[in-house]
Computed example of a mutant assay.
Amino acid sequence: MEVPLIEEALAFTVSTALGEVAVRMTDDHQAADDAPALLLLHANPGDSRDFAAVAPVLAREWRVVTVDWPGFGRSTATDPRQVTADGLVATAEDVLDALAVRHGIRRVCVLGNSVGGYVAARLAQRRADEVAGVVLVDPAGFTPQNAATRFFCRQVMGRQFFARLLVAPLARAYLGGLRTASARATYARARQLRHDTQRLAVHCALWRSFADPRCDLTGPVDRVGAGTTPTLLVWGRRDPVLSAAVDGRRARRALPHAESVLLATGHEPFSERPREFLAEVIPFLRQHATSAWGVAGAAG
Rank of each mutant, 00 (worst) to 15 (best):
L40K: 09
T76K: 09
R63D: 10
R208M: 10
V14I: 09
H29Q: 08
Q125I: 08
M25G: 05
R150Q: 15
G133R: 05
A190T: 02
L217D: 03
I282W: 13
Q155I: 06
T149E: 10
P4G: 08
E93Q: 13
Q125T: 10
V83P: 01
L200P: 00
E93R: 10
D33G: 04
T228C: 07
A11M: 11
A98H: 06
R74G: 05
G248F: 01
E276G: 15
R154S: 10
A292N: 03
D216W: 11
A211C: 11
R159W: 13
R179K: 14
F277R: 06
A188C: 12
A121G: 07
A100S: 15
V54H: 00
A173V: 02
E280G: 01
T149I: 13
R172E: 15
P36R: 03
L166H: 07
R214F: 06
L255V: 08
G294E: 07
L255A: 08
A264Y: 12
W293Y: 15
G46E: 04
Y118S: 11
R214V: 11
D47I: 10
P256S: 11
R164K: 14
R164Q: 06
R102D: 13
V65Y: 04
T231A: 02
L165Y: 05
V234R: 00
R238N: 15
G112D: 04
V57K: 13
P274K: 07
A181H: 08
D50Q: 08
V221P: 01
Q287A: 14
A55D: 00
G71T: 07
P213R: 11
V246G: 12
R199I: 02
N146Q: 05
T197E: 15
G112Q: 06
L263D: 00
T229S: 10
R252C: 05
G176S: 02
P230W: 10
A258K: 03
N113C: 12
V67L: 11
R159I: 07
G248T: 00
A140T: 11
I6R: 08
V281L: 07
D216C: 10
R237L: 09
D34L: 01
W235I: 04
S260K: 01
A205S: 11
A121H: 02
R63I: 13
R252D: 05
A148T: 12
D86M: 13
R106T: 14
G112M: 07
A211P: 01
G297C: 08
H29W: 09
R107I: 05
G300L: 04
A251Y: 14
P56Q: 02
L96W: 12
H195A: 12
R238F: 14
D212W: 04
R286Y: 13
G219W: 06
